[in-house]
Design a protein around this nucleic acid. Structure first.
Length: 650
DNA sequence: ACACGGCGC
DNA sequence: TATCCGCGCCGTGTA
């Protein structure tokens, strides 16, 4: 037995296993009543769900587990498929939701068997009770599943996955944390459901096997959150956790569940057109090379063709060869003595990439993600995905839908409001939020003044840098590169690449920039040294990002760390601002009993689906509450537009 | 699994 | 000596 073994753990091979002796399966009314009473008097409980899949919008609920601490846990099976004989079902519980036979349980059954509806009906008020704090690991998943099964949850006080990421832990899975904190090796789910083609769903796992697994999840969800509390205090993470991330969690769940309507006919039309265009481009490329079969996706092959056969000058190196990215290829097109075949091949590759990227990533994929029941696309927002505090989005990534090209805008126009029923989309975005935050953080007088006067910031920067009243488009362009470059920890080379200037000229512009904006220069130096001293960079709200690389002996690693240190407070504070706005707006929409709902967040932009007749009120509410989310020394400005689709708004 | 290229902010 | 600006996700090819 290891020293650290507490109650509820048994030793095996140096590591520990959860001790199932305090785990219970709830199969009778009496046991359920006892569980509900225990949860009510607990002062807080951890819970977890077992389901049939990883997509919470499509997963079927199989069971729920609970723990109130002390190593005790309960499993309430509500959706295991019968393994033997016909079984009772609850009214409306439908097919395949029967309970297992009594023989499947290790505990004696008293009274009539519980149905799913019995169980959920008893648990519903406990989940809804805002006076009882709840704990879960990755609560986004469980909240979504349970909401889809008619159970709303109030007062999720701590999500141990979110908390673990806020305190700077790298491994934030429940099983990782159990191992690191308690030296307990939890059973992987694949021990129950298998892997690959033979994998089964949890509803096919016998209750007696699922129960200890599920109980361990709840048990350790409780223990881990308990162990995280001192870390949260030590890392000063309580404010961000309690006042931003936890209140945001149900808002995000609401957005995911709301989803967004997709106009499939726009996409299928585009798909056919793109297929024809792509075939034509492939034909052209092949024709330029004397009818040879080419795979325009295979950069290695194309590179060999261009550089070795056609004598095209080699481009910038990558780890594995020479870059074939669009920037480099476009530069090659400018070469005087470029082989004619190479010219046509490069042209074809660039077009091919644009079209095939659009087709495979968006046009053909989005319709596959439409939910069969809701008819909408339900993206997942990851609250702990990024190092700076930004949200990320998957399935689909709704935060990188094209916007610049005409074809990209057509993809956006496939995202629409339910306008057949009078709904509209409203989009509101913070203008120049990161530069405003830079102004606030640096207190650079010229930047502050420009924003207070409501000036075009890139114009203002160009005027300051060049000492002119009238700014040329080229001067503004360079000022813009520098303004954004500062946020990313710019270097002379980066500026040169972006502006087609030489490195020397790039450095001159940087010197000019810092000469006019000494407050920014001082701020950057301050952030770097402070982050190095403390070991982390932080936002206005105290959100931290650990940066051990700032003390690395490796100059390159250190420089990369410095760029992260510069970027984190700016990008992270912007993330804080919009998260606070989301929480406040969601609450206000509910208070006013509006039907309109937030559906999408794209870093500095919020999109709402607005109910018939609510546009004026929601517009006013959003454009008031977004700027008010955080009080800075510069005003936050929000621009809003609306329309039937995301691609067609004014 | 990894590298690359490419889309967003 | 070459350096190549932050944060993401995804599809493809190459192992």
């Amino acid at each position: 037995m290891t020293e650290s073994t507490g109650e509820g753990e048994v030793a095996t091979r140096g590591l520990l296993k959860p001790d199932a002796s305090a785990y219970h399966t709830v199969t009778t009314r009496a046991q359920l009543n006892a569980l509900v009473a225990a949860l009510r008097s607990s002062g807080g409980f951890a819970f977890d769900t077992e389901t049939t899949g990883i997509d919470p919008m499509r997963a079927e609920l199989v069971g729920l587990s609970f723990s109130t601490g002390g190593g005790a846990a309960w499993y309430v099976p509500v959706g295991h498929k019968a393994l033997a004989g016909p079984l009772p079902t609850g009214e409306g519980s439908g097919e395949g939701r029967a309970q297992p036979t009594d023989a499947a349980h290790s505990e004696p059954v008293e009274g009539r068997p519980l149905t799913r509806e019995d169980a959920l009906a008893s648990l519903r008020p406990v989940f809804a009770d805002a006076t009882i704090p709840k704990y879960a690991h990755n609560a986004n998943y469980d909240l979504t599943v349970l909401a889809e099964h008619g159970i709303d949850i109030s007062n999720v006080a701590l999500d141990s996955m979110i908390a673990a990421s806020l305190v700077g832990r790298r491994a934030i899975g429940l099983k990782d944390l159990a191992l690191e904190m308690f030296k307990v090796e939890m059973t992987p789910i694949t021990d129950l459901i298998g892997t690959g083609r033979k994998q089964i769903t949890m509803d096919r796992v016998p209750v007696e096997a699922a129960s200890p697994y599920a109980c361990a999840d709840a048990d350790f969800a409780w223990r881990v959150q308990d162990r995280l509390r001192p870390e949260i205090d030590r890392e000063n993470a309580a404010h961000v956790l309690n006042d931003i991330e936890m209140p945001l969690l149900p808002v995000i769940v609401g957005m995911q569940r709301a989803g967004v309507l997709i106009n499939r006919s726009v996409l299928s039309e585009m798909s056919e057109q793109l297929a024809a265009d792509i075939a034509a481009i492939e034909h052209e490329a092949s024709g330029a090379m004397g009818g040879r079969e080419l795979n325009l996706n295979a950069n290695q092959q194309i590179a060999a063709l261009l550089f070795d056969e056609l004598g095209v000058p080699r481009t910038r190196r990558t780890k594995t060869g020479f870059t074939m990215d669009a920037n480099a290829l476009e530069a090659l097109l400018e070469k005087e003595d470029l082989d004619n075949r190479a010219y046509h091949l490069i042209k074809a590759i660039l077009k091919y990439r644009e079209y095939s990227k659009l087709k495979s990533t968006y046009v053909d994929t989005l319709p596959e993600l439409v939910h069969p029941r809701t008819g909408r696309v339900h993206t997942s927002f990851n609250q702990v995905g990024s190092a700076t505090g930004r949200l990320s989005s998957t399935n689909p990534n709704i935060q990188n839908i094209p916007v610049r090209t005409d074809l990209g805008k057509r993809v956006r126009s496939a995202f629409m409001a339910d306008h057949a029923n009078g709904w509209l989309l409203l989009s509101a975005d913070y203008s120049q939020i990161e530069l405003r935050i830079l102004a606030h953080l640096s207190q650079e007088p010229h930047l502050l003044e420009a924003f207070k006067q409501g000036e075009d910031i890139h114009n203002a920067t160009a005027r300051a840098m060049y000492g002119v009243e009238k700014v040329t488009p080229d001067q503004r362009r360079i000022a813009k590169v520098l303004n954004f470059g500062v946020i990313y920890g710019l270097g002379a080379h980066g500026v040169a690449v972006q502006t087609d200037l030489t490195r020397q000229q790039g450095q001159q512009f940087i010197d000019m920039y810092f000469g006019k904006y000494p407050g920014v220069r001082d701020y950057i130096e301050r952030v770097k040294s402070e982050a190095r001293r403390k070991g982390y960079a932080e936002t206005v709200t105290g959100r931290r990002r650990r940066l051990p690389e700032l003390r690395s002996p490796n100059q390159q690693l250190r420089a990369a760390g410095e760029r992260m240190a510069i970027n984190m407070p700016v990008q992270g504070t912007a993330a804080d601002v919009i998260k606070i706005a989301m929480i406040n707006i969601d609450a206000e929409l509910k208070t006013r009993r509006l039907r309109s709902r937030m559906t999408i967040q794209v870093h500095d932009e919020l999109i709402f689906e607005v109910a018939p007749g609510e546009m004026d009120e929601v517009h006013a509410l959003v454009t008031t509450m977004m700027p008010a989310a955080m009080s800075l020394t510069v005003p936050l400005n929000v621009e809003a537009k609306h329309g039937r689709t995301w691609g067609d708004m004014e």
